[in-house]
Amino acid sequence: METPDEDLVSRFQSGDESAFEVMVAKWNEPILQLATRLTGDLEEAKDVRQMALIKTYQGLGRFEGRARFSTWIYRVVLNLCRDRKRNAAVRARALEDSVREKDGDYVLVETGFHVARDRELAEIVAQAVLALPAAEREVVVLRHYHELGFPAIAEILGSPVTTVKSRMTRGLTLLRTRLATLET
């Protein structure tokens, strides 16, 4: 059974440095995924992950548990991503890297056309999400890709649940318009 974050925080605060390793193992992937989908740049996402983990390491000692650890770490990543100034060139370069290549087995059973279309489709979806206004993009990414409930997202953003729901609906509606040609 997975150790709760709060237990890991307590262990770290008691001087058990190995607890940080467990936290990294648990949060490395979600942080990178979130940062990739918010910045659209894999390299920039790795920078955000490094800074988020450094902030975690330095801040764990003062973590008082007023909010859940997951809320705290998501806030850190969101704030780091918001601080990033990106230009169009960076976004275009990164988008290609942020779309995962299908693994070898998939390529074997699919025709080249299908593989190419799949990648193209993934890029179109990624561009549509990245083109959303920041407020809607954050909610869509947290809800859809990180499977966080509206109350949890509201806590992370410091906004009412009703606002989060409205942003999600608006985000999906905007995406529907942009992806309309792909819907069959």
Binding site: L32, Q33, S98, R100, V125, L172, L175, R176, L179
Partner: peptide, 18 residues
């Protein structure tokens, strides 16, 4: 129905594993 299709399309964007 349209939003449901959009929801399904979102799943096509996969990011590389860490």
């Amino acid at each position: 129905s349209g939003l449901r299709e959009t929801q399904a399309l979102l799943g096509r964007w996969e990011t590389p594993p860490a």
